[in-house]
Design a protein around this nucleic acid. Structure first.
Length: 422
RNA sequence: AGAGAGGUGGCCGAGCGGUCGAAGGCGCACGCCUGGAAAGCGUGUAUACGCCAAAAGCGUAUCGAGGGUUCGAAUCCCUUCCUCUCUGCCA
């Protein structure tokens, strides 16, 4: 969430930037500021009341000690009113803070200057494209047909075990998936990211820290008995490792990578575009996360983009990079680049990575700070990206590398697979 | 899962109703000492919020978390989370 001091300082600028999201912040900012004023004055009154109360208590204590019980009992009566007042002020303060937070939760992050205005994904700006789109033979198939033909992914079996959106990978399909995970992790660690294995269920505080809660509660699976959430992305557990932390500037950047399955309810998704691997309730993903000092985060985002590009270059898949417009930008992000791979047999682009700079938006919730060279504490910047999300990369490989007699394996994956074609 | 013990500052550890944000030690920073270092000595060493233009300063809160008793709680009571030991179960 946004920082109160920042809102006060940059109000007009923020309002303008938020119009790119089609979000009108003017009245909400006024409410926020007036609530914050109220919070402060209430805090002051409460502090004064408590100070007086503390003072009296000390005096009473001294009196009892000096054997002046009678005087002490008289003084006690004066504390009754103070106690009532402080109780009321405490309640008022709690209410005001709750209202303030409630309001702050509804305000999305401030888009950067380079973010184009726009309503939907149609307004995203293509900034890069690479890789030849192959000309497929007559009779080429979409990946779900290929999966059946070569018996490498069984969607029906997943339906039986769990339900739609939980495919079963078999034989060379499973092996190819594992190869991709290992290849991605190797690429990421070679680039300096530290590998982690993290929990796949998180508590409420973690979901809140990275911004999934309370906004996207309905998108996560919830294990009610233990009040835990299945992770929708490794971003949640990985970033939350650093919740409530005060780092030293020399510790930064901190760079992490983790492979996890991801679980998403995808409520509201339906239709032909969710076929096959295009949209699943459970999928695998290798994620990269960076914590940066403020002045470095823009460059860090560019570095992450270059890193993901290098992976796709090695896989020799046709892809493009989009700069998301304000309307399509995630709630917590200031700038996001989506990577899409071209799915030849479906004749459409599939999102396979999303690389974002959240600046201090998550850190503010996470209480993730660092001490800079001057000894001042400031919020760290958090960034993350997929490197990469598996199913659609798999779909891209199956479709783009298909021949009438089998599916070639991208050269870079052959050592990981142990076979050259399916 | 059952029984017991416990969660205190960066770490160890005392305190078990009042002057306790909290002894003592370690660590860390600075200074003295030294040719230099070690040792020794001295000083300092939490976070958040509020008041203040700001610094200084002052106030408030924080001894796992939340609530309660009390004029007053690290200390007493309740709830909850976590850790350890023993028993049980188990990949």
């Amino acid at each position: 969430m946004l920082h109160l001091a920042d809102i006060r300082e940059n109000k007009d600028e923020y309002i303008k930037a938020l119009t790119k999201r089609n979000f009108d912040a003017s009245s909400i900012f006024d409410q926020v500021i007036s609530l914050d004023d109220k919070r402060r004055s209430t805090q002051t009154s409460l502090d004064n009341t408590l100070a007086e109360s503390n003072k009296l208590s000390k005096e009473i204590g001294m009196m009892f000690k000096n054997g002046e019980a009678h005087k002490a009992n008289i003084l006690k009566e004066r504390t009754v009113k103070l106690k009532e007042d402080s109780k009321d002020l405490q309640d008022a303060l709690a209410t005001t803070i709750a209202e303030l937070d409630q309001l702050l939760y509804t305000i999305p992050n401030i888009p950067q200057d380079s973010v184009p205005a726009g309503k939907s994904e149609d307004d995203n700006e293509e900034v890069f494209r690479k890789g030849a789109i192959p000309t497929l033979d007559e009779g080429s198939l979409p990946h779900w047909e290929l999966a059946k033909k070569y018996d490498i992914i069984d969607f029906e079996l997943g339906n039986k075990i769990t339900g739609a959106g939980f495919p079963v990978y078999k034989g060379k399909g499973a092996r190819l998936q594992r190869a991709l995970i290992n290849y991605f992790l190797d690429k990421n660690t070679a680039a300096g990211y530290m590998e982690y294995q993290v929990p796949h269920l998180v508590n409420e505080a973690s979901g809140f820290g990275t911004g999934q809660l309370p906004d996207k509660e309905g998108q996560m699976y919830h294990a009610g008995i233990d009040d835990l959430y299945l992770i929708p992305t490794a971003e949640v557990p990985v970033t939350n490792m650093y919740r409530d932390s005060l780092l030293e500037e020399k510790d930064l950047p901190i760079t992490c990578t983790a492979y996890t399955p991801c679980f998403r309810r995808e409520a509201g998704s339906y239709g032909a575009h969710v076929r096959g691997l295009n949209r699943l309730h459970q999928f695998d993903k290798v994620e990269i996360v960076r914590l940066e000092k403020s002045e470095n985060s823009d460059a860090a985002l560019d570095g992450m983009v270059e890193h993901v590009k290098s992976i796709l270059d090695e896989l020799k898949l046709p892809y493009r990079i989009l700069r998301l417009c304000g309307g399509d930008l995630g709630f917590t992000s200031t700038l996001t680049y989506d990577f899409e791979v071209f799915s030849t047999a479906q004749d459409r682009w599939l999102e396979i990575s999303s690389v974002s700079n959240f600046k201090t938006f998550q850190a503010n919730r996470l209480k993730l700070r660092y001490r800079d060279a001057d000894g001042n504490k400031q919020l760290a910047h958090t960034l993350n990206g997929s490197a990469l999300a598996l199913p659609r990369v798999l779909a891209g490989i199956l479709e783009n590398y298909q021949t009438l007699t089998g599916i070639e394996i991208p050269e870079v994956l052959i050592p990981y697979c142990g076979f050259e074609r399916i």
